[in-house]
């Protein structure tokens, strides 16, 4: 009985100690060249497509271009440096913020008024912040240049898009770019496995040291290449757009009447596979900055 009690004590102590550990520091990451250029854009032609879980026919009457990858840390750091130089952003504590013109307020249930003013764009000094500021300029932590930017709010995503005279995709634009016109649930078609996308417990090389919740993978990682023995499928959407399922949730542009919430698409490294289905919606306060939240833009 004493042995049993001792074993129980050791077990409980060890799990409690495990829980009390500080979590992972920014892990060293393997560096792989994906061969996918984050500066490239894909053209999505005008026309109807099947939107949502129940395949409603929706028409987008214009062509548009969408980035073939999520905005990377390198791209976002470059934006911050330019914006800092021309005074568009300020740093207070660990928050980078800038101006947003505010939303129309309709006093909807649970709606929070977004008045004109300064709002957070990016959260520095978090474990998952990959961009650092040394007092003079912004740079990216080693190995994370081509990973999607995270810890960026909707305001920060919107500001990036506006700065270059681009914009965030609407939900419809995002979904069409992700699944094409044939109603497929994932960008590549049906079914999901660890070699298709970065999601919860998908065992990619970047998950080591971080646990099942994982780390971001470089933009365009799942393109049919093999990285250090890890095989990937070519998981571009029908229009050649990468990472539309998994890696990071992506902010979209739509602002709906009666709510301040902004909508996110695509699932993330921390999502179960079913949340990577192209119609799945997520939402958050526009000031939310998360380690699995990023964006891409359209023009």
């Amino acid at each position: 009985m004493k042995k049993l009690k001792a074993a129980l004590l050791i077990f409980i102590s060890s799990v409690l100690l495990a829980a009390c550990s500080a979590g992972h520091a920014t892990p060293d990451v393997p560096v792989f060249q994906t061969g996918v250029d984050p500066e490239e854009w894909a053209t999505v032609p005008s026309g109807a497509f099947q939107m949502g879980q129940f395949n409603e026919q929706v028409n987008i009457s214009y062509n548009y271009q969408i980035m073939i990858t999520e905005v990377t840390n390198r791209q976002y750091a470059a934006f911050l440096n330019q914006a800092m130089e021309d005074g568009s952003i300020t740093i207070t504590g660990d928050e980078i913020s800038g101006y947003y013109q505010g939303d129309d307020f309709h006093a909807g249930r649970h709606e929070v008024e977004i008045i004109p003013g300064n709002y957070i764009y990016y959260l520095l000094d978090e474990t998952d912040s990959r961009i650092v500021y040394d007092g003079y300029q912004f740079s990216v932590k080693t190995g994370y240049d081509d990973h999607p930017v995270t810890m960026v709010s909707w305001f920060g995503a919107q500001a990036y898009a506006s700065y270059y005279e681009w914009r965030l995709p609407t939900e419809a634009e995002w979904e069409k770019a992700a699944r094409g016109t044939d109603g497929r649930p994932y960008p590549w078609g049906n079914g999901i496995g660890p070699d298709y996308a970065n999601y919860y417990n998908s065992s990619d090389p970047f998950e080591e040291g971080t646990g099942a919740i994982g780390n971001t993978t470089p933009a365009g990682f799942y393109n049919g290449k093999t990285y250090g023995g890890f095989d990937t499928q070519d998981c571009a959407s029908p229009y050649g757009v990468y990472d539309m399922a998994g890696n990071v949730w992506e902010w979209t542009a739509d602002i709906y009447t009666g709510t301040h919430l902004r909508y996110l698409r695509g699932g993330s490294k921390a999502s179960y596979g079913y949340d990577l289905r192209a119609w799945t919606r997520n939402s958050a306060h526009p000031a939310f900055c998360g380690p699995d939240t990023g964006f891409r833009v359209v023009k």
Binding site: V15, L16, A18, A19, C20, S21, A22, G23, H24, E126, T127, D128, T210, G211, A212, I213, A270, G290, P291, D292
Partner: peptide, 17 residues
């Protein structure tokens, strides 16, 4: 009580229990 960045040990523990 814990940010997403630091949640893994707590997730592992609670899921194990």
């Amino acid at each position: 009580f814990v940010s997403q960045s630091a949640e893994q040990p707590l997730v592992d523990l609670t899921m194990l229990l």
